[in-house]
Design a protein around this nucleic acid. Structure first.
Length: 151
DNA sequence: GCCAACGTTGGC
DNA sequence: GCCAACGTTGGC
């Protein structure tokens, strides 16, 4: 089983939205590296740190899990939609996404400040300045530490 | 809202 | 295949 961190802008799609929806297709990712993680490495049952970027405070707000393996991202075919990709075809879809389900929301978020402060979390990608990758692999150790910090 | 860092595009 | 220009991300 693998562990991940998925970013979402807090005011765009938050952990509360996921709680309400119970499950959602992680569509709209238009970055090849992030797509490759979803397509090739994320599997049903993998655990996900749900991270809010551009929010106050920024940090991990809860936990989600992968509920459906990668499949074509429908938003790429929606003309006039924000995520429409004219170069993509149904025969050979360019973008894929997994579905994620709600697991829990932390009482208090584990903030980016905390993550940077904890020596035991050295090496987490999200600590790097300018780390724009919206889906990042996380080690089991780091995942568990974040979970502990939330208690 | 600013701006540095990054990814992508497109001309050559 | 290089690289400048551009658009986007995301912390502050």
């Amino acid at each position: 089983m693998n562990y991940w961190l998925m970013k979402s802008e807090g005011d765009c799609y938050s952990i509360d939205d996921l709680k309400r929806d119970k499950t959602t297709a992680w569509s709209g990712v238009r970055n090849y590296q992030a797509r490759n993680f979803m397509r090739d490495h994320m599997k049903k049952g993998d655990m996900v740190l749900f991270y809010h970027s551009n929010s106050k405070p920024t940090g991990v707000y809860g936990i989600a899990k992968v509920t459906v393996n990668a499949h074509a991202d429908e938003t790429q075919f929606k003309k006039n939609g924000e995520y429409y990709d004219p170069k993509s075809t149904h025969e050979n879809p360019r973008w894929q996404c997994v579905d994620v389900g709600f697991v829990k929301k932390f009482k208090e978020p584990v903030t980016l400040d905390q993550i940077k402060f904890e020596d035991s979390l050295a090496g987490m990608m999200v600590r790097n300045r300018g780390s724009r990758l919206s889906i990042q692999p996380v080690s089991e150790k780091h995942f568990k530490i974040i979970e502990e910090l939330a208690k």
